[in-house]
Amino acid sequence: MSAAQAWLTLLVFPGGFFLLATGLLYEFIDRKLVARYQNRVGPRWFQPLADVVKLLAKEEIIPTGVEKTLFIGLPIVGLAGALTAALYVPIAGLPPAFSFRGDLIVTLYLLSLMTLCLGLSGANTVNRFSIIGATRTLTQLFSYEAPFLLALLGPALSADSWQIGQINDYAINNLWMIVTQPIGFLVALVGLMGKLELPPFDAPEAETEIVSGALTEYSGRGLALFRLGKDVELVIGLTLISALYLGGLANPLEFLLKTLCVLLVMAGLQSLFARLRIDQTVGLWWRIGALLALLQLLAITIGKVLL
């Protein structure tokens, strides 16, 4: 890969510009869908972009009592982590830009980096809402991460590879794994919602209790970067689930259709339930989520031995 190509990959497609634009578009679709489910009008198509532009134009207040470097650095690291993760997934149905053995684990790690940054940024401030938000963010991280990982390992085991590109190829040529591993799909989908702190798993940023959780002290640029990071994570998460469970992503049209289908279901789930308390979230994941994911793995292993 020449230098020009590498720059193009990082800045325009699939990293950088394309990913940010898709992220904002998907945030709009998500907000609009939830609004329509709730019988509201919802935002206009450019609202997420307008929000980001507005935030970038605003003054960034660095509160007293924070470690300044961390406060400025964490949003950048978080967004960078999410953007880097995009290089290993088949964004827009095209083969991943980079690929190596075990990149599934690296991608998941990079996605968790974002949550970790979020938690640290809350713990970095002296704001009491932020600290409680940070505690909840990290508690939630420890509860959904294991089941989510187990759920994504199911397709990896079936495909005999921990390389996202290869799992994608396997998924294209075989029966959709949502049919063969329905439990895994469900756990992965709900896990993604936990990762993105979407309702009903939005206890870490429950506005009626702790204002904005870990991000309470953030304003301007930092807040904009964290929000962009979450949008990027949403796109990558949807891509991963569609690639692994919905018969792979062979071309841009398939990417669009499949990810939007998952988003439609996710928006429905977001508007169906009341917010779970953090203890209920942890209970749900460890008592039900982890158990189901393990059962699924066991079933796959037995299947592989028998066939």
Binding site: Q38, N39, P199, P200, D202, S271, A274
Partner: peptide, 16 residues
Amino acid sequence: AAHEGGFDTLFMYSWR
């Protein structure tokens, strides 16, 4: 009350 519990769908419906 539904909004305080994070159940915004019920909030929007009942206010409609």
